[in-house]
Amino acid sequence: MQDENLSPQESLRLIESMINQAKNRFSEDGHLYLLWGWAVLVCSTAQFVLLHFFHSQYHYYVWMITWIILIYQVLYLRKKYRKERVRTYASNIIGFVWLTFLIMIFLLSFLIGNIAGADYYRHISPIMLATYGMPVFLSGVILRFPPLILGGIGCWVLSTIAPVLEYDYQMLMTPVAMLIAWIIPGYLLRKKYKNQIA
């Protein structure tokens, strides 16, 4: 690019072309969506099987796996952050959306027990599904990626169905939510990312 003076029309064309170059760069490869989508799907299905078919008291222990995934995620994000050559406002905002989601999940887990008393476990699935919908929907809006927007809406729909189901079957709403909110959009994100690189 030569450093020479421009006509106003050329200036505007240049600004537009550079902004489009930066905008078209899609940095989300769907890796964490797929990782968490599959992990939560496996855990929630395993919990349902343990509770419904084996009547196990310790059905919730399967969720311990998520701690390993959380550690992996921290290491993965550190590596990714070091590799990045450009950081966008979108990725920054999405990071905060997911942080808000994590804080809300921890707070709600604590609050449900206090508010709902002995019956608290019946409210966990609907409230968690409603909360899941928020970061998925917002990520879709920020990334301008309709499958995530639909996934978020899907979670909210599932959250209205869950309260009318028996407790065991409420658990099956979570794998469905993972499929529509994280796994399918995750594979579509990966495809879009790979197409961009090719």
Binding site: M1, N5, L14, I15, M18, I19, Q21, V86, S91
Partner: peptide, 15 residues
């Protein structure tokens, strides 16, 4: 100036 404007336009779009 072409190059400075290009750099500024890129930086306006990213953090």
């Amino acid at each position: 100036s072409q190059l400075r404007l290009a750099v500024m336009s890129l930086l306006m779009s990213v953090r």
